[in-house]
Amino acid sequence: MLTTLKYEFMKNRILYAIFLGALAILEVVYLAMVPFYSADSNRIYIPIYLLILAGVFAFFMIFFNGISMFSRDLKSKSGYLVYMTPVPVPSILGAKILLVFLSSIIFGLGFFALGLADLELLSVVAHRSDESLRFILPDLIKVLHSDHMVLFFLKKLVHYALSIFSLLSTVYFSIALSNTLLRGKKFGGVISFVIFISLTLLFGFISNALRVNHMCQNLMEIFFGLLCFIGTSYLVAKKIDL
């Protein structure tokens, strides 16, 4: 799985470099403007807004890219290189999901740390403590200073991992369905999209019904994710036509 993870990363490295480059440029613009901060001007907020916008865009692009890479492998000839290897399909799928999880986590944490530093810098330069993170996200600051910080982040991380696994497995299942059993069929794409929406609604409905019990909710998420993951693995391993 690690080898596949490595090559999935290599395929995406230019995209990641573009994101990081764009964020670095905006950060430099922000840092260049900080010394010229004036209470009468709002110009300093422009790079901040752009940074937030670019960060959110990049975060979503990591997901979309994870989805489109799977789809492309089933449609283009470069998929041969992936599926002619003696690697079991679940391992290939796992590597794709793991890459989205890891890159989004690393990117998200990096972006959060950068935002934290930028806000603190602004609060110092502007002599305005209300620009500081502790005023913007007071609950988070409380957690950061509490004894349960590690547990809190661990829980969030597990929940995030489960959500990613469940969401991507559902999307992959629909794509695999559209490229195998429904391939070339009239309205095959539409049918697979409808299946995706129906599955998402069904999972959402059951998950909401179990909202009172987080453990049950997590278990359901694992169950649905696994179901779609196994379904996708079966379709790709047994019904693929590259």
Binding site: M10, K11, I14, K77, Y80, L81, M84, T85, P86
Partner: peptide
Amino acid sequence: KANIAFAPTESIFFDY
């Protein structure tokens, strides 16, 4: 697949 080597007619390599 560890014992079968296949060279398809199309280009299969990644762009990078």
